[in-house]
Computed example of a mutant assay.
Amino acid sequence: MTESVSTGIPASRSKTFGAAWHDLSSGFQQHQLWLQLGMQDIKQRYRRSTLGPLWITIATGVMALALGLLYSMLFQLPLAEFLPHVTVGLIMWGFISGCIKDGAEIFIDNEGLIKQLPSALSVHVYRLVWRQALFLAHNLIIWVILMIIFPRPLGWEVLLTIPAMALLIINGVWVAMFFGIVATRYRDVAPLLEAMVQLLFYVTPIVWTTQTLKEQGGDIAQRALLAEINPLFHYLEIIRAPMIGEPIAAYHWWIVLACTAVGLTLALVAMKQWRSRVSYWV
């Protein structure tokens, strides 16, 4: 009886949801491997750099300050209110876009390890999400500094960032797994996703707010409602609102939970059908 290359599961059983779930669970149990590989990725990226990973924080901070100053003047908004909105949005967008764009090439970039290392396919996905989480942790320093400069009343709602972050990480896993498999099979998907992420940045309330558009009235207010169709708006909102001391409607959570369930299902279906073929496609 033959076995799949990456997991050692018999080929006759590789195209089942049980095998797909086994890949996710066994890959998670290999945490020492993907934790070390993720750390190594960051060290390799900033090798011989004096500031090292702090360049991530500096670059994000400068971008947030520049965009915050520019758009606060354009929209005539107080900088103390608008800058936290932009900053937290950029920090979370960095994680989201990283999981999408890097996820599309995660298996292609790890061709050697996939063919030579007998491990679960999900190890490479966890490695990517862990690396993006480390980038996110570095950027959160900016939020801490911002809360010191522009203090805002943060109640118990700030604790909602914990389950919100957990949901974001779970979504990062299925996004990287699903798009990674699809983009490995169809190589045109990766550049298409990169262009799409760039477009989504402008249609997601990061450097603008839905409240500002609603206050304009007329057709502009109606167009602001289109932001509700964008699922990324709700992902940002469940994290950003508690972090900057703003109220959050419960429907944002329900939409994110529904999208998470659908996304995990898509990832499991993709793993069930094509997981065993990835080692050949790369």
Rank of each mutant, 00 (worst) to 15 (best):
H124V: 03
Y126K: 06
L128D: 01
Q132H: 09
A133K: 02
L134P: 07
F135T: 12
F135L: 09
A137Y: 04
A137D: 02
H138D: 02
H138Y: 14
I142C: 10
W143E: 01
W143K: 10
I145D: 07
I145G: 15
I145P: 12
L146W: 00
F150S: 08
P151M: 03
G155W: 02
W156E: 09
W156L: 13
W156S: 11
W156Y: 09
W156M: 12
E157G: 09
L160T: 10
L160P: 06
I162V: 12
I162L: 11
I162C: 07
I162N: 05
A164M: 03
M165S: 14
M165W: 13
L168W: 03
I169W: 08
I170G: 14
I170E: 09
G172F: 07
A176H: 01
A176M: 05
M177Q: 13
M177N: 12
G180K: 00
I181L: 05
V182Q: 03
T184F: 06
T184E: 01
T184Y: 01
R185W: 04
R185F: 00
Y186C: 13
L192A: 14
E194T: 14
E194D: 15
M196F: 15
M196S: 14
M196K: 00
L199I: 14
F201P: 02
Y202D: 03
I206E: 00
T210G: 13
T210I: 12
T212M: 07
E215K: 15
E215P: 10
Q216L: 09
G218M: 00
I220F: 10
I220N: 08
A221G: 15
A221P: 00
Q222E: 05
Q222A: 11
